[in-house]
Each structure stands twice: as structure tokens, then as C-alpha cells.
């Protein structure tokens, strides 16, 4: 179920544009923020509100790399390995995360706590190597800071102790 707060946000966002379909991508992002992924219900609701067919919403989802229709981990570790990060050890950071979590690119731990993704430049090049956990930035990473971060997140979410 989409929350009432989200539906109100939908109304406010759609009102910003002279053409309603402009709101599709922002609405998808906000719906995904709430549910963790873009649900079938969200697709139907957005299509109906902006006056397009559901398939047109689905077409957009397929284009944008941040949108996904299947659940992912509660904490999505997005490690940049692009040029500035590569030069300062971004590859090793990715490997370290992968080993520690036992998952690879675009995989999720069985308990649903963590996902891992190798991503392109995050706009944090001066703090390379960098990553984002969901929307939060972490810069100047080392294996030690990664360990502390992951352990901290695990504690916050004890379901993952198994």
C-alpha cells in the first residue's frame, strides 16, 4: 500500500509540471524510497495519475540504473571504481566489501540486509575511494573504515546475525 504521505507528495510533484508525464521518474524514485523497490502497485498508481499506460512507466524503469522492480538489501553498498577511485584503490575496496559480505556485483545477502553494486562516478572524486550506502556518502575509504561501517550497520539491523 502506498502511504497517504506519499500520495500527497505525488500530487505536489505532479503540480510542478505543465505536462503530467514529466513527473514519472521523480514519482518512481519517491515510491522506491518508501517500499525499497518499485512495486507493481506503484507502477499502476503512477501510470494512472500521470495518464500513461503502465508499460510506459515500465519502459522508464528499464532505462534508469537506480530504479529496480525487485527488492534489494536494506543497505545498498554502491562502490565507485571509476577512474579517480580506481587510481586510489576503489577496486580493492569493492573486493573487500565483496569478501566481507560474501556477495558479488548486484547481489544481496540471503538475510536481505546488504546489497553490493559496482557503480560509476558518484561525484566524490576528491574523496576517492568513495561509495554510497543508499543515499549516504562515505569517502576516503579504507578496509578498516569499511569493516567498521558494515559491522555498525549489522548491529543496527540484528536480523543479519544469522
Amino acid at each position: 500500500m502506498l502511504s497517504d504521505a506519499l500520495k500527497q507528495k505525488f500530487d505536489a510533484v505532479i503540480a510542478r509540471y505543465p505536462v503530467k508525464r514529466s513527473a514519472i521518474v521523480p514519482l518512481l524514485m519517491f515510491a522506491q524510497d518508501e517500499a525499497g523497490h518499485v512495486t507493481e502497485e506503484a507502477i499502476q498508481e503512477i501510470a494512472q495519475r500521470v495518464g500513461v499506460r503502465p508499460i510506459e512507466v515500465i519502459e522508464d524503469i528499464g532505462y534508469y540504473s537506480m530504479l529496480h522492480r525487485r527488492p534489494i538489501g536494506r543497505y545498498n553498498l554502491q562502490v565507485c571504481t571509476n577512474i579517480s577511485c580506481m587510481l586510489r584503490g576503489g577496486g580493492a575496496i569493492f573486493e573487500h566489501c565483496s569478501k566481507k559480505l560474501g556477495i558479488g556485483h548486484k547481489q544481496t545477502t540471503p538475510d536481505g540486509t546488504f546489497s553490493l553494486e559496482e557503480v560509476e562516478c558518484l561525484g566524490a572524486c576528491c574523496g576517492a575511494p568513495a561509495m554510497q550506502v543508499n543515499y549516504d556518502y562515505y569517502e576516503n575509504l579504507t578496509p578498516e573504515t569499511i569493516d567498521a561501517l558494515i559491522d555498525g550497520l549489522r548491529k543496527k539491523n540484528p536480523a543479519s546475525e544469522t
Binding site: 508525464r21 521518474v25 537506480m66
Partner: peptide, 23 residues
């Protein structure tokens, strides 16, 4: 207006399509 992960949407005409709710 938030994008959703696409370098190409920084190119001005692709950006306009994206802003219109298209790919």
C-alpha cells in the same frame, strides 16, 4: 527534478527528454 542514474541525461537534449518523462 530528480534523475535516476543515467550519465546520458547530462547531455542537454537527452536531459530534456528525461525531464519530459521519457527515456
Amino acid at each position: 527534478h530528480t534523475g535516476a542514474g543515467a550519465y546520458e541525461c547530462g547531455e542537454e537534449t537527452a536531459l530534456l527528454n528525461s525531464l519530459e518523462g521519457l527515456r
